[in-house]
Design a protein around this nucleic acid. Structure first.
Lengths: 213, 213
DNA sequence: TAGATTGTTAATCGATTAACAATC
DNA sequence: TAGATTGTTAATCGATTAACAATC
């Protein structure tokens, strides 16, 4: 596991940008670019070059002065920082429209995220498969999650069930939750939650375009 | 249109919290709660009471000292600030899994967002309906968007087509874009873009659970 | 009136930007 | 060597938190 330089606390803002760097480096690499400057990388992402250099400097010295960054090497380093140099097993809870869409989302596995189980309560859905992954009854969560060594749970159930599902996931030993339910969920401090709140995006756009002069 | 107090610039962080306040007030209202303190509202959202009072104070005085906030009244005020006191017509471009899921997402209309058109290039899909909304060919975007007075576009096409679609949406007169493609898109300054980048969530979780000691 | 809670100013904290020495 | 670009320190900017007077 890659440690940061002197155990300094890394800002959340920095962490949120690392996946953007990683993704953009990957695109550049696929285009055959071998070396990239913070200037060019920043231009592609929409971030200042200083920001990038500052962010990276929290973890080490990955560039070559006067030259730039070797794309492949920087990718490997950021991948290591993000913990992408391994496989994470994930489960989706709730096969509504969104859960179904995410279960079909193909871009997870190249980054090391493997969908290993899907859960629902609808008897109609249980036993079926999405993309070769079986849908199980929610009551079997404990067994399935430990048997399949699942570390991350994705919650796509309605808001009024989200906390209960989160509790069950935690109980089953999950370490991280990606929550799509539009509600705050409480978990113990050793479990990490990222909330993807799709109910705010349009409101925020509405605000800005309302006050266009 | 609700003006802020003395034309001060409102921080982006404040704007991003307003929809959370709105949503939580709505839930409270549905539970029959008529008055709420910043303390209680903050507890439900996971934000400090000071933060809420500070955010709101940028727009006016909505509370009653020693009492709290009238839920219904505060909701109306925040709704006005966000521009939710009207209907916005929206279009989805790209009927992949995610576009399909969003087209079926029922929670938009209660907040005044009406899906008026869906676009794709697949001849198989064109002419079909999702939830009573027709799928049109992308080449008819200009006419349809102005005919149906659509102000907001949702991009759910692959990353390599996103910029082109954004250009077409802007050309058709759209004012705001909700972008789900994992790439930065450039638009003129009078168009507002919110990016919902689903490719970063899992990486960010991976980072945090990797370094759990 | 006493207790509660807002709205706002001041203090603190954190993140971004600017500047530049180091060096490839 | 000269030019380019990193890594890092210092300066600035912005956002959050603390404190408290105002007042219901």
């Amino acid at each position: 596991m890659k440690e940061n330089k002197e155990n300094a606390v890394i800002s959340k803002a920095t962490i949120d940008r690392l996946p953007l760097y990683y993704r953009t480096l990957k695109l550049s690499q696929e285009e055959g670019i071998e070396i990239i400057s913070s200037e060019e990388l920043g231009r592609k992402i929409g971030v200042t070059p200083e920001q990038i250099r500052k962010d990276l400097s929290a973890f080490g010295e990955f560039g070559k002065k006067g030259v730039g960054y070797y794309v492949r090497e920087l990718m490997r380093n950021i991948g290591e920082i993000l913990g992408l140099n391994r496989t994470w097993n994930i489960a989706i809870v709730g096969v509504g429209h969104l859960g179904w869409a995410l279960a079909n989302y193909a871009n997870f596995s190249p980054q090391g995220f493997q969908l290993r189980a899907i859960f629902d309560i609808d008897p109609e859905k249980i036993g079926r498969y999405i993309n070769e992954v079986e849908i199980f009854h929610i009551d079997t969560m404990n067994e399935i999650i430990s048997a399949r060594d699942i570390q991350i749970g994705i919650i796509t159930v309605p808001a009024d069930h989200a906390q209960n599902i989160a509790d069950r996931l935690v109980e089953a030993g999950i370490k991280g939750i990606w929550n799509f339910a539009p509600i705050k969920i409480d978990v113990p401090p050793n479990v990490h939650v990222i909330s993807e709140d799709l109910s705010v995006g349009l409101s925020s756009i509405s605000y800005y375009i309302s006050r266009q002069h």
